[in-house]
Amino acid sequence: MIPGFGDFIDNKRATGVVIKHIETQFDNMLDEECKIQRSKKSRDSRIHAALYFIRPTGKGLRELDIHCLKLLSERCNVIPIISKADLMTADECRLNKRLILRDIRNHGIKIYDFTMCFEDLEDEFFPGRLSEIVPFAVVSGTDRMIIDKEEFKVRKLPHGVVRVDDPTHNDFLILRTCLLGASLQDLKETTHSTYYERYRTEKLTNTTMQDLLGDSPSKFDRTNVSSTLMDRLRNNIDSRQSSIMSAERYINSKSKVNI
């Protein structure tokens, strides 16, 4: 969770904090791999999935959503989720999903593809095509209630009760099944083989270039480099002049002695 995300006037720094945290976990993994003796107690702290909650505005994605999703999609598996689905009717929920998917396609945002795990879940949870569910619309709730001799986690509203674990009320159960069951291993493999390998390649390439060119930032400054070269040339000229002057003195002294 990211407390306060999107509550400020300028939220660009908030997005940078999230990306930095993801890259820090990559750095921890890379440091562990580079050790001669790896610790057996080390754990994988990489972010395998980012659940991005979108407000049900009925207008698609905000500029902040687009900016953050673009950056996140370059570093981890992104799963868009419509929050507070109980605020919408069924028609409004379908409209929100279409608008969000339209903006995702138009801005080239990469989201995690659940197509592989949908085939195993269609018969169990959803009679139609599960690919039409993304982005998931979920409702949260912590209360419990016995309904038809069965206990449900619910969200109580003035006009009724929303069963959180009921796939006909929202997509929470399908999302949980996909994340913790059908696509859990694939999320980890995608993180390792795609996002981590890309970051690892970039990191090692930049480190190698710095080693070749020098670690000091001043060495990359053309002004400093040129001034260093000029100093060397002056020193060489001065040394040559001094050697010439010493040679002239030697010749003059010889000539005086001969006379």
Rank of each mutant, 00 (worst) to 15 (best):
C34H: 10
K35A: 00
V162W: 10
L130D: 00
I9N: 07
K41F: 09
L61V: 02
V78S: 07
D221A: 05
S239D: 08
K153Q: 15
I237C: 10
D91Q: 14
E189N: 13
G160R: 06
N258K: 15
K203R: 12
G58Q: 00
I259D: 07
G108N: 13
K59T: 10
L213W: 01
G108R: 09
A49Q: 00
M145N: 04
K35C: 00
T201W: 03
N96W: 01
L187G: 06
K110R: 15
D221C: 10
A182F: 01
D86K: 02
D86G: 01
S242N: 06
I146R: 08
I2N: 09
C178F: 06
L184K: 13
V138E: 01
V17A: 12
S216A: 13
N224E: 13
R102Y: 02
S39Q: 10
R200K: 15
R43L: 11
M145Q: 11
N252K: 15
R55W: 05
D166P: 04
S226I: 14
R144D: 00
S216H: 11
N11I: 03
N170Y: 00
C117K: 06
I66R: 03
R176C: 10
L30N: 07
Y199L: 03
T190H: 12
K256Y: 02
D215L: 14
I111A: 01
T228W: 07
K35Q: 08
G214A: 06
G6E: 11
H48S: 12
S242C: 01
D165H: 07
R240N: 05
D238R: 13
A85D: 06
